Amino acid sequence: MTSPTIRPATRADAPAVAGIYNPYIEQTTISFEEVPVTADDMARRIDDVNNAGLPWLVLEADGRVRGYAYATKWRVRPAYRHSVETSVYLEGGAQGQGWGGALYRALIELLRAKGIHLAIGGIALPNERSVALHEAVGFAKAAHFSEVGFKRNRWIDVGYWQLKL
């Protein structure tokens, strides 16, 4: 196994990123999306993040994309411009190798360099792995919404973790 590298995402990464993300849509309540995304959808999302001046990173190991992390605007109103929502996804079986933490630390570093004040991570609960990842890189729980989403025939809570940069 080669050492992982982290780099900015490009449109060419969209098929791999969609391939990582779609099982979360189809098989879990981690994502609140319900319809798988196409590579074209994902390419547009990568472009939107890049055009907003925010980072989208991919982690490569063994010659392929194994995970990704990105930040989006928290809300559209101007006073929120110093806050972002963050996301990290790894392909199935890639957890437990420290790659999520590596992606998150790289993302946080870029956000700090851009002068972002607050990073917010939303987590569909329960999700012990995601909670542990967020807390390992310094996030603290800030909010808990009960039964805010409905997917796979059940109500789902969402917690928000925040990190002041």
Rank of each mutant, 00 (worst) to 15 (best):
Y89I: 12
V131C: 04
R7H: 06
V17K: 11
A119P: 07
L54E: 11
H82P: 11
D40W: 01
Q162S: 07
R44Q: 14
P23F: 06
I123M: 15
Y70F: 08
L107P: 15
Y24S: 08
G122E: 04
S83Y: 01
R77H: 09
W155H: 03
V76G: 14
L163I: 01
A61S: 14
L111N: 07
G138S: 10
L163W: 02
S83I: 05
E135Q: 12
V35K: 13
D47H: 10
R129W: 04
T28R: 06
L110W: 00
R81N: 11
F139D: 04
Y89Q: 10
A124L: 03
F139Q: 02
W99M: 15
V17D: 10
A132E: 09
R112L: 09
A14I: 05
Y68C: 10
A16Q: 10
F150H: 14
Y104G: 07
S146H: 13
R45M: 12
Y21C: 13
I25K: 12
K164L: 12
V131Y: 00
F150Y: 15
K73Q: 12
E109I: 06
G93F: 10
Y160Q: 09
A43Y: 03
Y89A: 10
R45E: 08
Y89D: 09
K73S: 12
V58S: 06
W74V: 00
F150D: 05
G121D: 01
A61K: 14
A124T: 11
I20A: 08
H82L: 13
P15Q: 03
Y21E: 11
I123D: 14
I123R: 14
E26Q: 14
S87T: 15
R45V: 10
V148I: 14
G19E: 05
S31L: 06
L111H: 00
G101E: 14
R64W: 00
A18F: 08
N50C: 09
N153E: 15
L57W: 01
A52Q: 11
A113N: 09
G19M: 01
A39I: 03
D40N: 08
L133N: 01
L107G: 13
V131A: 02
I156V: 15
R75I: 00
T2S: 15
T10L: 05
K73N: 11
V84G: 10
S130F: 06
L57G: 03
I108Y: 00
R7Q: 08
L103Q: 03
A113L: 11
M42G: 12
L133E: 02
V158T: 06
A43V: 02
A43N: 07
H82F: 14
W155K: 07
N153I: 04
P55E: 03
A69Y: 01
A124V: 00
W155M: 06
S3G: 11
L59N: 00
I156F: 01
H117W: 04
I108Q: 07
F32N: 02
R77S: 08
A52H: 09
N153G: 07
A61R: 15
R7E: 09
L107H: 07
I120Q: 06
T86S: 12
A9K: 06
D40F: 02
